[in-house]
Design a protein around this nucleic acid. Structure first.
Lengths: 210, 210
DNA sequence: TCAAGTGTGGACTCTACAGTTCAACGCTTG
DNA sequence: CAAGCGTTGAACTGTAGAGTCCACACTTGA
């Protein structure tokens, strides 16, 4: 899908290119970013890039998809770490939410890409866009639901539609912060982030606690 | 601020330009949009554009600010229409939220601009960005608070920090829908929007109802 | 060690676009 | 009704960037 030449290119070069592309696309946006600049940043010639990727769009979407998978995995690890075994519902949810929010700041180039994708949404081939949504935001979001379902089974939360509960959790914590910081582009003071997130969890528990 | 030549240009031409700019910037994004295309769309020469605006960036930011004021006013009217006199809390809040969400769909070019601004946030002069945030999203958001405060005074809602309540209301209704549709770029079936919004209001009232 | 084949690099083409120049037009004002 | 000036439009300039071409070098297999 992203590699028209199945065996083309040395893997190390490919990774240098995708890394550079993530940085340059992240800093400049899709149109502003020059393939020349990406090549320079990767320490590679432009021709090499066109050996690995069909064109600029293919490169961009490949990088975006790769980043989406990476972030989704990171979030899956956070879920497992904080919500596999519950000690204290409020504490564990808060710790998870805080790290979940911090994860956005840990992948600044990727989330700059996310903003570019959102801006270009109407111009991205629908099938590709859908693939990206499924690999990234949708999955990251839906994976919370089973953990909440389990917590409800264990009597830690009131039993309700876990997907809707996950929705509300995300809105009250991550989405709230992302909305204000433009996915980390204009950061907020850390203590304000902490306050927003802990308040979000508190509100969530007012809905589903007990 | 946006007009370096205070008395320059005929108002009708200026409005033709800003209208065309809103459409072209909305459809193409900032970098892709050509000043030539905007001039053609406006039925005006490129030179005329540069008589009214310092450069492309000035034009873009002027249009964005203008649109922000327009949308903010529209929302203010919705607030007044639905929440000035409360008949039934749930019905009135739902009607407001539904129209509030529909307003996003009524200004498609403006919200395409909003997505562009979010994508370019890190590259926009901070002072200008802040001005835009204050004129648009922040004001549209904060103006809900006094209405909620009034409803609490009248015993229709549990009295709590009205700004936080407004925050939660917005997250559970508008932000939720915007998040899924990319501000209307990839629309959702109307009945699903209705369901999301009514559910959001129901959830809000579980937090603040009575 | 040598030859074949593949990936690589820098120079090249062609298009597109931001911003300017200058002559003519029309609106306002006396 | 006429003069003057601000506004307009089409052609022009310079630059930047996406994608290509061809010669070379390096890896791979005998």
């Amino acid at each position: 899908m992203s590699a028209p030449h199945p065996a083309a290119g040395r893997p190390e070069k490919r990774r240098a290119i995708t890394g550079a592309a993530r940085r340059v696309f992240g800093n400049e946006g899709y149109v502003r970013a020059g393939v020349d600049a990406i090549a320079a940043e990767a320490g590679v010639s432009k021709r090499t890039i066109y050996n690995h990727f069909r064109d600029k769009e293919d490169l961009f979407l490949s990088v975006a998809l790769e980043g989406a998978h990476e972030v989704t995995e990171t979030i899956a690890r956070l879920l497992d770490r904080h919500l596999r075994k519950i000690v204290d519902v409020a504490d564990d949810l808060t710790a998870f939410a805080l790290e979940r929010v911090a994860a956005v700041a840990e992948f600044p180039e990727h989330f700059a890409l996310v903003r570019t994708i959102e801006a270009e949404a109407a111009r991205i081939p629908p099938a590709v866009l859908e693939e990206w949504i499924k690999a990234g935001p949708q999955t990251a979001h839906l994976r919370l639901a089973p953990y909440l379902a389990r917590m409800a089974d264990d009597g830690l939360l009131t039993p309700e539609d876990p997907e809707r509960a996950a929705d509300h959790f995300n809105l009250l914590t991550v989405v709230n912060v992302n909305q204000r910081t433009f996915y980390g582009a204009i950061p907020l003071p850390p203590e304000q982030v902490t306050e927003l997130v802990t308040d979000g969890v508190r509100t969530f528990l007012r809905l589903y606690g007990r």
